[in-house]
């Protein structure tokens, strides 16, 4: 880790102002992605702005059929929140399956989503549940949010403050973990909503994506069988030491079927 300056603002405005002023600043949430990359010297910001001192960023609210989770909410809080468990149990189950207890107590939903790691779990839920990303300057529909590997539409210094999830009729997440890192090799989130079925897949491709072919099939017939004939294009899949593109494409269908099975 190289030396950097540390800041702990107490409001969103102060945080954003600092970011704009400072030479090469970065926000710090749970630090579970940022700190490893600092330690490995893959990142070398001049300034680190710790969001932990800003009140209200870790709140969970349920009002008018919308579940709003503050960006700084730790995975463990989502996993154990009675509100999340009753409104979107699939979301708390997903959070409970991230990393280990230490990771879940530090890592945050905002950090995970802002980071857009292709193997992270939360992006599948955010996209699958048709969430809205609330920042210090705007609200962003999720279909526009994720733009690529570690890329989102967030602008320089734009601070994610909360994520708003409309309550689905039902939802399920099934993950095939990478055996070493336990991130998602393939994770499929399926939600039945008033506007139809949404299928979001993480881990498989450079960025989380919607499997529209699966959605169409499930909108006609919400059953495992409806997915049987669907195989995703291996050419769009990631490939690494742990899983070839072909295997990932296969797993997408298997995990999707298992998610449907949970909902049937």
């Amino acid at each position: 880790m190289y030396d950097f300056n540390y800041h702990k603002p107490s409001s969103i405005d102060e945080a954003v102002a600092l970011f704009i002023d400072l030479e090469d600043a970065v926000y710090l949430a749970g630090g579970h992605t940022l700190l490893p990359s600092l330690k490995l010297r893959l990142a070398a910001p001049t300034d680190v702005i710790d969001l932990a001192g800003i009140p209200g960023l870790g709140d969970i609210d349920y009002a008018g059929d919308d579940l709003t989770i503050g960006a700084l909410t730790a995975h463990d809080d989502v996993a154990t929140s009675p509100v999340v468990q009753s409104v979107i149990p699939a979301l708390s189950a997903l959070a409970a399956g991230i990393g280990d207890a230490q990771v879940r107590n530090r890592g945050t939903i905002g950090g995970s989503v802002a980071n857009s790691d292709p193997a992270a779990d939360y992006p599948a839920a955010v996209l699958g549940l048709d969430a809205t990303l609330v920042t210090n300057q705007r609200s962003i529909a999720v279909d526009e949010f994720f733009t690529g590997m570690f890329e989102t539409v967030l602008e320089e210094g734009e601070l994610l403050t909360a994520i708003r999830f409309p309550k689905p009729e039902a939802a399920a997440y099934v993950k095939y973990p990478n055996p070493a890192s336990r991130y998602a090799t393939v994770g499929v989130f399926i939600a039945r909503t008033t506007k139809g079925v949404r299928v979001a897949i993480t881990g498989a491709a450079p960025s989380v994506f919607r499997a529209t072919e699966m959605e169409a099939a499930l909108n006609v017939d919400f059953s495992e069988n409806a997915l049987a004939g669907i195989s995703l294009d291996a050419d769009m899949m990631n490939e690494d030491l742990h899983a070839s593109a072909e295997y990932r494409a296969h797993l997408c269908t298997v995990m999707a079927r298992r998610a449907v099975a949970q909902l049937s």
């Binding site: 055996p179 070493a180 890192s181 690494d240 030491l241 742990h242």
Partner: peptide, 28 residues
């Protein structure tokens, strides 16, 4: 089941961290 040290053909270690070198864990 899990562990395998991999070098690529240029001799770079591909499994140089626990993200890629898979150690057995209790739940395995």
């Amino acid at each position: 089941l899990l562990e395998g040290c991999v070098y690529d053909e240029t001799g770079q270690l591909q499994t140089g961290s626990y993200m890629d070198y898979c150690m057995p864990r209790a739940d395995d």
